[in-house]
Amino acid sequence: MKFREENNHTGSRAKIWPSTWFVLGVILAQILVSVLAYPFMPAQVPSHWNASGQVDGYMSRTANAIFVPAISAGIYILRRILLFIAPSTSRNTNRYVLAKLSDYLLCGVILFMFAIQLVVTAAALGLPVDIGFVVCLATALLFIFMGNYLGKIQRNFWFGIRTPWTLADDTVWERTHRLGGWLLVGAGVVMLVMSFFAPLRPLAIIGPILLVAIILTGYSFLVYRRLSQSGGKA
Rank of each mutant, 00 (worst) to 15 (best):
M1F: 15
M1K: 10
E5M: 05
E6L: 11
N8I: 09
H9F: 09
T10C: 05
A14G: 03
S19N: 06
F22D: 00
I27E: 05
V33P: 05
A43M: 08
A51G: 10
S52W: 12
G53I: 11
V55K: 03
Y58I: 05
R61A: 10
T62G: 15
A63E: 12
A70M: 03
Y76I: 00
Y76Q: 02
R79D: 02
L82A: 05
I85S: 09
N92Y: 12
N92F: 11
T93K: 10
K100W: 03
S102E: 05
G108N: 04
L111T: 15
L111H: 10
F112R: 00
F112P: 00
A115K: 06
A115Y: 06
A124G: 14
L125R: 06
L125P: 12
L127N: 12
F133T: 02
V134Y: 11
L141A: 03
L142S: 02
M146Q: 05
G147Q: 08
I153Y: 03
I153F: 02
R155D: 08
N156L: 01
F159T: 05
P164D: 15
P164K: 12
T166K: 04
D169S: 13
W173F: 04
E174K: 14
G181Y: 09
W182I: 13
A187S: 14
A187V: 03
G188E: 11
M194K: 11
F196T: 15
L200Y: 09
P202I: 02
L203C: 04
A204W: 10
L210H: 06
V212R: 14
V212C: 11
I215R: 07
G218R: 12
S220W: 00
L222T: 07
V223G: 07
V223Y: 05
Y224P: 01
Y224W: 14
R226W: 00
L227N: 00
G231A: 05
